[in-house]
Amino acid sequence: MPKSSIAMELTKTPNKTAARVGIGGPVGSGKTALIEQLIPALAERGIEVAVVTNDLVTKEDALRLQRSGLISPERVLAVEAGACPHTIIREDPSLNIAAADTLAQNFPQADVILIESGGDNLASTFSLDLVDYWIFVIDTGGGDDIPRKRGPGIIRSDLLVINKIDIGPYVGADVDSMQKEASEIREGRPVILTDCKKQTGIKELIDCLVHNVLFLDA
């Protein structure tokens, strides 16, 4: 098939307007906490959100968001991972794509669809066909050697978030060196430090999304 005809079909696929942003990273690094911060902060700037969660064993994250009062429950869809959190964002993202399509269809006014991965190891990545932009979340509790351990999430993600900077001192993690090492490895791609308990870094994160994904400040 000639390339041009594929391109033509692509422009017809539902929701090429709402940006799809993947949020990956190890279990417990704060992906859902970050989404809980992002939703109201995006809403404050008039940016409408829908969410796909990839809970591993339960529907815990989807229910947590649906009950949070931050977002109307029907804007949150859960996709089951069949014991393979990385498979459904990387090798076979079709259920996630279908879920995002459904949200785009039901909420055509949505500006951004956040897709939270079920939580995985440092080697997990998002399929380029699933997301337009990819955030990888690690936290100081995982150890300050995590950036040094590299892995595609740390090196290649569009944005690296180092979360839980508040607990750094209690777990012996040197936050500054984490940031420095991560920035060196990432060759200029952004690194943002956050504390979801005190909303530190959230504004910076939104600025980054607005500038790099939503192009609203152009």
């Binding site: 098939m1 005809s5 033509m8």
Partner: peptide, 10 residues
């Protein structure tokens, strides 16, 4: 999901 994929494959 099958349709979503085939739409994108043209």
């Amino acid at each position: 999901a099958f349709l979503s994929v085939h739409i994108r494959l043209g």
